[in-house]
Nucleic acid binder design. Structure first.
Lengths: 207, 207
DNA sequence: AACCCGATTAATAAGTCTATTAAATAATAA
DNA sequence: TTATTATTTAATAGACTTATTAATCGGGTT
């Protein structure tokens, strides 16, 4: 049944660890908990990954890499006009977060508390976004010259977009609990804001 | 020298604990660390506050209360016109965060990981913002009727404002490290974004 | 069968953490 | 002064953590 049954336990541990790390963070997750979640002996976690740090880094780097890979993917971008490009980038970013709603908090926490991970991020961010920035900055200059948008840096758009999108998945769950908003209302609100965030950025760009 | 020297040790512990909790969060801060920071015996932390939870809650509730008190203060608001009101609310919010840049992460973390604190937040948020919402929603209706702004909920503005401002203090330190932006550049960028965030909201409101 | 070897477990060392207790010290009152 | 009370410390119990070690299990090979 399993193509690689040798890997199944290793993968189970990775899955359980990912779940728990995302839920409770690095410090609050113990290898004992992970083992219990998997249903195996605690020593097995160390047998496969030696240390808790190794296990965490393995997951973190994977998630992290996939995450930025998707964000900075430009393959579908070329054929769109400027407004469509903005919409596509912003909505792709939203959708990615929607599929990984707990990633931002993990990244924010572990990156602020464990500066050694910064190197990893710097590495990713030095190579990946170059293409995207190149395309967008060229495009924006054309729009600016034609008087169709204001004089703004693409970096400002990125910051605005990330702020608006990420906050939806960090602040909203909290707000929902406080204001007693149920699951369905939350989904409706998210769908509404997915579009609204694009509008905010487009309005912001108007001359 | 001290008016209440009896309190000075208690206060020292509170100060050290606040610093460490803000820096490292609840779980990653030990009473032993707090004592070391103060320069006293570890048992003393428990003598004054009995449990680490008590100590944390004391700090959390205080910080928390002050925080929302300031945000929802409406005393200076009455005499301003609509645009000025928006600007005042947004810039006050920014300034408050600027003085307490680590509060958002603490609140986000502890609130998402310890749902018992939600009750506290709900309590605060049920009483405090009523006045503000009352003023603003009335004002906005006037503006909408006069065709000066679009049909938007004040809640949308609040969400946008909080997203933009909070993210500056959560995402930017990370981004600064990655992009090797120094202190001065960061300050410049913050000052720039303080105003830009207001502009984003005002543009968003344009019909 | 005996053997091998990777996977798994039980046991445990060594360390940290919270919280308590009893003893020591400082401050105050009689 | 002495008695009383408050503050501070040293010591430690008990729970939990990470990581290691040696023993066991089970399937495949010879």
């Amino acid at each position: 049944m399993d193509i690689n049954s040798e890997n199944s336990m290793e993968q189970s541990i990775l899955d359980a660890a990912e779940k728990l790390f995302l839920e409770n963070g690095f410090k609050s997750t113990s290898t004992t908990q992970i083992a219990k979640e998997v249903g195996c002996n605690q020593a097995l976690v160390h047998y496969y990954f030696r240390t808790k740090d190794n296990l965490f880094n393995r997951i973190f780097e994977k998630k992290f890499g996939d995450f930025f890979q998707v964000i900075f993917d430009t393959t579908l971008l070329e054929q769109l006009n400027f407004t469509q490009k903005i919409r596509h980038i912003c909505e792709s970013h939203f959708d990615l977060l929607n599929e990984n709603p707990k990633i931002p908090m993990l990244i924010l926490n572990e990156l602020s508390r464990r500066p050694d991970h910064i190197a990893l991020l710097r590495e990713k961010l030095h190579v990946l976004p170059e293409k995207l920035f190149e395309i967008m900055e060229k495009d924006m200059q054309t729009e600016i010259d034609a008087g169709r948008i204001r004089q703004v840096n693409f970096m400002d758009i990125v910051l605005t977009m990330v702020s608006l999108n990420v906050s939806l998945f960090t602040l909203l769950p909290m707000a929902a609990q406080v204001l007693q908003i149920d699951e369905n209302q939350q989904k409706t609100l998210l769908a509404y804001r997915r579009n609204e965030n694009v509008e905010i950025i487009l309005k912001y760009l108007q001359p």
